[in-house]
Amino acid sequence: MLKNRIIPCLDVKDGRVVKGINFVELKDAGDPVEQAKIYSEGGADEICFLDITASNENRETIIDIVRKTAKECFVPLTVGGGVRTIQNITDLLLAGADKVSINTAAVKNVNFVKEASKKFGSQCIVVAIDAKKVSENKWEVFTHGGRNKTGIDAVEFAKKVEENGAGEILLTSMDKDGTKSGYDIDLLKTITNSTNIPVIASGGVGNLDHLYDGIVKGGASAVLAASIFHYGEYKIEDAKEYLNSKNVSVRL
């Protein structure tokens, strides 16, 4: 039986791990390579790096981090943030990333998803969708860390990236991110029911019940969280034991 995945996410800025509240107040807290190693040893099913300042600064720092991490962690490594060109993807994969997560570039031009999945295979193309609720059962896609409104319906966009070869969707609720009040379950349920590819839930985890809800109520194939793991409130092991005790199958 396929297990539900737990994915710790490390937000990286200038080579250091940070986790912002609603993408604004950043705290500096650690070396990403060391963090990734701890997660991997704790049983993380995958590790995700999000380069949150990649849009404006040079990309060598994150590539170097990926290179070092990939030599020490032997679980899948996803890297997102500022992935805009085929060359960006090539560089990250050569450094040792297994998947890349595309956000703004996919919104701007969905053909980029098609081109990337054709060249590298769907297995390594994740499309990150940042969605914000605009009315009852309606969500809109945002870009640039939730700053820019696009007018694109999140459900329609999710279907479109699937058609264009995305292997997975990383779905973040902009309303919930940083609030620690749990995933947006309605959003999650709507997207998992409208697509046939795995959906990774993101944004809002404050406790282990939220992970349970994401999988059981939201239908997510994987749950991503940052701060609950990063600040040591819970270990990956705690999350797995908890889910297992509630009959959610995880890799132990």
Binding site: M1, P76, G167, E168, P198, S221
Partner: peptide
């Protein structure tokens, strides 16, 4: 859902040299 992505248990069907000391139902990444 497809792709089949993530950790799944393998069920060993016959002795294989590359499964030496690997338990049945071990998790592998697919």
């Amino acid at each position: 859902k497809l792709p089949h992505i993530g950790w799944n248990e393998i069920e060993i069907q016959k002795e294989s040299k590359i499964f030496k000391d690997i338990k049945n139902k071990s998790h592998m990444y697919f």
